[in-house]
Nucleic acid binder design. Structure first.
Lengths: 209, 209, 209, 209
DNA sequence: GATGAATGAGTTTTCATTCAT
DNA sequence: CATGAATGAAAACTCATTCAT
């Protein structure tokens, strides 16, 4: 396994530096989950158990820290999608949405940035490609209506975001039942959709926050 | 029509005071739509065309201003629900969700607080009662599955919120297609839902961010 | 006399605001004279007897405060030049250099910015025009060598700057004797100068610090 | 030639240590010339190609590094003065001022400290002695007015400093023409100077910065 | 009352210096 | 010893709230 690299992706970091980087990302996730993105960098540093300077050595601005966090989540989601492609019988799409729901439920606080694609166009594009494949597979197996497009799956993700964001703290699993309803709505044999789907490239230009 | 009252709901306000109140609420809606809730009170006062002192005479804190804004929206939504009860053939629920979608699409910025029910338990309860009636009506007309409960309709609202928030600015109508899918999922003749619905009172305790 | 206006030069400021503006400029002059430009804005605010917010209401950044200070000095110097034109017998140039020497001696700390013309091209140009007139007058009266150009007078000013900067605190009048020597060197009947003078427009492009 | 010694001037340093010392001084000169004295020690270390620890092993504080740099320049200037004594016909003083002008033009950034003699009284004293000799020689040859004193030559140096500092980057040779005027002012047969010269010992107490 | 200037605690960011690897 | 990561005090700047005019 390749060692963690710094933000410019160059030579590997010293072991202690890499450990601090991870600690900082974990701490940031915790603090932002608690207080939203206006949680302070000072709190992040304290929770990580490092000094302010260490945080700023690793991440040149607070924004960079948030971006790194979001990148990590998007990478996880991309991995989820690739894992889901192994599912049999066109079940991959459902598996993927469940995985995304879980990630979002654990990462509230960062949600507004995760789907602010204008800062993360590349991973978003890759995820979109995976979604297209998962969707096609599900459609071939007759599990999903023919008029659904990848943008509808993104909408489903944002939908789960809305539910997790509203229920966070008090009902961490509320999104699961909502997803059941959504998936039912995506099954075949419904009246055709009347509104136009979102253009493919719009997904890559979503505003951050 | 009863004259506007001040925040403590006591004697009616002088005419110009009431006008300032409205101006400030409009300005706040505009500023928060633009910049989110971290928009500054100074901006609000400037857009309203009044001084800071006037703002603070009307609303003792920024929180109070936001609360007033949210209350107004919740009142609007409650009114939407009551209007929707006049719809024929169990279409009221659908009409209501469309109305809420439109309100949310026009009021992003305040969304996180709108469904932070712990500060607005009473109007939320009233809305919940209306939703229960709309849902029962839709179920009686065979338009909505029997295992849906009012909390599922709330989830649908949060779901729309998630879509409007993600697409704001770039695709203001994306939520309409998503709602079609959601409503399809709420139709009868689907496999029964396996996850438990949200307890009725949880809706009233949602965290305000 | 027209009341002080804010930095955008629009409508007049409230009396107390104008007073604070003056206080802040005085305090800044004092603090920067003491500690150089790395004197802190907090010190400036404290010396002025106002809060940080007041400073930042008047001057949006520390740079803006420094610029305002420099502008005021340049305005003073321009006024000195115009006053000097009233001097009889071609003595105006000497009077002007004495005046500039005094200003610089009282405003050390800001010196590097005063002659960083790239940020203050307009007043610098006006001063240059006045210097050209004073120089021509002095030359007509046979007090200054014919091969001197306005840039040489600027060099004399920077020269005084060098002396005041080096001797500040310990010998506040050292520049006066140095100026006598310089003026002697500018008298007629010396061997002609062999190095080319500075191009006229270079003076307006001097780097700030 | 005696080997370089460490900052306490004791036993000679190992060869590689001495090389690091030189590298650091060169790097510091470069960085400070670029950014002034607020250039960072981290930049110095990077330009020198060594780690921070090495820098701090060689120089216990940033101040010590600056002092070492200034000492080196003052040593160079002292050497310039001694070389100038070999000049024939009382030209040594002029040669010396040209040499100092060149050094200053190449070492802006450190200028404020070079002539902050309170930290470098000893070399300053030695330079003063050399200047006294050069001046006497020039006066004996009838090249310089009889009422000039060594402090006037220091003032000339600070004067050149003022010109180089103001014109740095845009007119690296502007000081040469200014020096011609200054030397003209130092020639005999001018009206006697009316302001008292600087006391001899003041030169040794100039404030650092 | 209305106005908008003043307040100051809180936030992000920098950088000389120290210390683990 | 050399390295470069870690430290944390200090600096610039923001903004909800108060108060003089």
């Amino acid at each position: 396994m390749t060692p963690t690299t710094d933000s410019k992706g160059e030579r590997p970091m010293r072991r202690d530096a890499a450990r601090n980087r991870e600690r900082l990302l974990d701490a940031a996730a915790e603090v932002f989950a608690e207080s939203g993105l206006q949680g302070t960098v000072e709190d992040v540093a304290r929770v990580a158990g490092v000094g302010m300077g260490t945080l700023y050595r690793r991440f040149p601005t607070k924004e960079a820290l948030i971006d790194a966090l979001v990148s990590a989540i998007l990478d996880d989601i991309l991995r989820d999608a690739r894992v889901a492609r192994d599912a049999a019988d066109g079940q991959g799409l459902r598996d993927f949405l469940v995985a995304v729901g879980e990630r979002q439920a654990h990462r509230h606080g960062q949600l507004p940035r995760i789907w602010g694609a204008e800062r993360h166009a590349e991973p978003t594009r890759k995820i979109q490609a995976e979604i297209a494949a998962l969707l096609a597979d599900a459609q071939e197996h007759g599990r999903v209506r023919a008029d659904a497009v990848p943008a509808d799956i993104f909408a489903a993700i944002w939908s789960l975001r809305g539910v997790t964001e509203s229920t966070r703290g008090v009902a961490p699993d509320a999104w699961r039942r909502h997803l059941e309803i959504l998936l039912a709505g995506l099954e075949p044999s419904h009246a055709p959709l009347t509104y136009e789907p979102l253009a493919r490239d719009v997904v890559e230009r979503l505003p951050a926050r």
